[in-house]
Simulated scan of single mutants.
Amino acid sequence: MVDKKKKRPIDEFPWQEYDKEEFKEKYPHLAKELEEEPGLVIEGYRVEEEEEEELMDFSGYNPTVIDFIRRCETDEEALEIINWMEEHGEITPELAKELRIKLVKEGVRSFGTKKEWGWYERHRKR
């Protein structure tokens, strides 16, 4: 009588151990990637930022380009803001270039969490 080990659902989880050759046979592309020199090094990552609870006095406050970008939903909207502000002399061409590079490389959320309608009212000193 052959004693077959009954597979349990946990046996199918990806963290199970593999023989190196079995792994190469089952996942050849992944095995190749793991054996190669790292091509992309991740130096850091962003986590969801918590909004500051500190209340501010906004009397006389003039929003910056970053404030306007944080209102955008998409990278395209942010690019429109950058272009408009540069064309109207609100920001320098050098700053516009830096902002475009950051936008292309990291996306609109890299400028901060989205400022929804009423943000200033919720964060002002009363």
Rank of each mutant, 00 (worst) to 15 (best):
V2Y: 13
D3T: 12
K4P: 07
K5A: 12
K6L: 12
K7M: 14
K7N: 15
I10R: 14
I10C: 11
D11R: 05
D11A: 04
D11L: 03
E12P: 01
F13W: 13
F13I: 10
W15M: 08
Q16F: 11
F23L: 04
E25G: 01
E25S: 05
E25K: 15
L30K: 11
L30H: 06
K32N: 04
K32E: 06
E33S: 06
E35A: 12
E36I: 00
E37Q: 12
G39R: 12
G39Y: 11
G39V: 05
L40N: 09
V41A: 08
I42D: 12
E43I: 13
E43S: 11
E49A: 14
E49K: 10
E51K: 12
E51F: 05
E52I: 03
E52W: 02
L55H: 13
L55K: 15
M56N: 13
M56R: 15
F58D: 08
S59G: 01
G60H: 10
G60V: 06
N62A: 08
N62S: 09
P63I: 03
P63W: 07
P63D: 05
I66C: 05
I66P: 06
D67S: 02
I69D: 01
R70V: 04
E73A: 09
E73T: 09
T74S: 15
D75A: 12
D75M: 14
E77Y: 08
L79V: 09
I82A: 05
N83P: 05
W84A: 08
M85Y: 11
E86K: 09
H88G: 03
H88T: 15
G89W: 13
E90L: 09
T92N: 03
P93F: 09
E94N: 07
E94G: 09
A96Q: 07
A96V: 05
E98N: 10
E98H: 06
E98M: 07
R100T: 07
R100N: 07
I101S: 09
I101G: 04
K102W: 01
V104Y: 10
V104K: 08
K105E: 11
G107Q: 00
G107N: 03
V108R: 03
R109A: 02
S110I: 00
F111T: 00
F111N: 01
F111L: 02
T113G: 12
K114H: 13
K114W: 07
K115N: 00
W117E: 13
W119H: 15
E121S: 08
E121C: 00
R122T: 10
R124G: 01
